[in-house]
């Protein structure tokens, strides 16, 4: 897989990240290096190897279905750039 400038712009757009020209170039170079490193794996025979989905060998980490108090609303809203007393405020989403 080739990391191109277009791909960097596309991923930045999907991630809602604004990059200037220099950052885009840096990203292209760094992401390219990461992908290249991964290419090493392609040289190995992985037939019959289960894809690893989690790095720790644990499964079934679960909790009981018991209600605990939620957070105070002012705490939930505290970090929002804009909020009323009850809800967050975001740009209008209905066209």
């Amino acid at each position: 897989m080739q990391i191109t400038r277009e791909l960097v712009e596309y991923v930045a757009d999907l991630s809602r990240i604004c990059l200037d020209g220099a950052s885009e170039e840096k990203m292209e170079r760094e992401l390219g290096a990461v992908i290249e490193y991964m290419e090493v794996l392609n040289a190995l025979d992985t037939d019959g190897v289960e894809p690893l989905s989690h790095v720790f060998q644990v499964t079934n980490v679960m909790r009981e279905d018991a209600v605990a108090p939620s957070s105070p609303r002012e705490d939930i809203l505290a970090g929002a750039p804009e909020a009323t007393g009850q809800t967050f405020v975001v740009p209008r989403t209905l066209e």
């Binding site: 018991a66 605990a68 939620s70 609303r73 809800t87």
Partner: peptide, 19 residues
Amino acid sequence: SCTTQFGGAPNTHCCPVCT
């Protein structure tokens, strides 16, 4: 562990995980 109950005042059945 927030409740799933219907009809709470807005953003009162929330915690750091579900937000």
